[in-house]
Computed example of a mutant assay.
Amino acid sequence: MEQRVSLVTLGVDDLARAKAFYERLGWRGQELSETVFFQTGGSAFVLWGREALARDCGLPVGTGSAASASRTTPDPRPRSTRSSRLPRRPVRW
């Protein structure tokens, strides 16, 4: 099986400030619900409010636990049907 990363999520304390930081680097973000997606070649980089990320991972909010949370999710779609375009809304498996 080919190993590769297609999505990286970073929990941040201030979503607007983090978005502005990456946009100053020349990245163009797309806001979706409580997240900001950036297309990075063949993968996506996602900023998510730290508390919202903790809730999504089922971790206690406000304990710093979201900083150490990680989730690996394989892309379930056949390779021939995958698109390099970002989803219109976050995908939840």
Score class of each variant (00 low, 15 high):
51 E>M: 09
30 Q>A: 13
24 R>L: 14
19 K>C: 14
74 P>F: 07
58 G>Y: 15
21 F>K: 09
85 R>E: 14
45 F>R: 03
20 A>F: 15
44 A>E: 02
85 R>H: 04
74 P>S: 03
81 T>P: 03
19 K>Y: 02
38 F>D: 06
85 R>G: 10
75 D>F: 06
49 G>R: 03
30 Q>S: 12
19 K>Q: 15
73 T>I: 12
28 R>T: 15
39 Q>F: 05
59 L>N: 01
71 R>H: 09
52 A>V: 06
48 W>G: 00
50 R>C: 06
56 D>L: 00
42 G>D: 10
77 R>Y: 05
44 A>I: 11
52 A>M: 08
60 P>D: 14
36 V>H: 02
54 A>I: 04
83 S>H: 14
34 E>A: 08
39 Q>C: 04
75 D>Q: 15
42 G>V: 10
79 R>P: 14
26 G>D: 07
68 S>V: 10
29 G>H: 01
84 S>W: 00
26 G>Q: 03
69 A>L: 05
24 R>H: 11
40 T>M: 09
68 S>F: 08
85 R>P: 07
75 D>W: 03
30 Q>T: 04
52 A>K: 01
21 F>A: 11
45 F>L: 13
40 T>N: 03
56 D>N: 07
55 R>Y: 04
52 A>R: 01
62 G>M: 07
63 T>E: 09
75 D>S: 09
67 A>T: 04
21 F>H: 14
60 P>F: 15
42 G>W: 15
67 A>F: 05
73 T>N: 13
59 L>S: 12
86 L>G: 02
20 A>T: 07
84 S>G: 13
71 R>C: 10
26 G>V: 14
80 S>K: 00
41 G>K: 13
22 Y>C: 13
21 F>P: 00
20 A>E: 14
26 G>C: 11
86 L>R: 02
23 E>I: 06
70 S>H: 09
59 L>Y: 07
56 D>V: 00
86 L>Q: 06
63 T>W: 11
71 R>Y: 10
82 R>N: 03
55 R>D: 13
86 L>A: 04
70 S>P: 01
46 V>D: 08
48 W>L: 06
32 L>G: 00
53 L>Q: 09
53 L>R: 06
51 E>Y: 05
63 T>F: 01
19 K>L: 13
29 G>L: 05
51 E>T: 15
32 L>I: 11
68 S>N: 13
55 R>P: 03
64 G>C: 04
54 A>L: 01
31 E>G: 02
43 S>L: 11
67 A>Q: 05
78 P>M: 11
48 W>Q: 02
60 P>G: 13
61 V>R: 10
60 P>H: 11
57 C>S: 12
49 G>S: 13
33 S>A: 11
78 P>W: 01
83 S>D: 04
36 V>N: 02
81 T>L: 03
56 D>F: 00
60 P>L: 11
76 P>L: 08
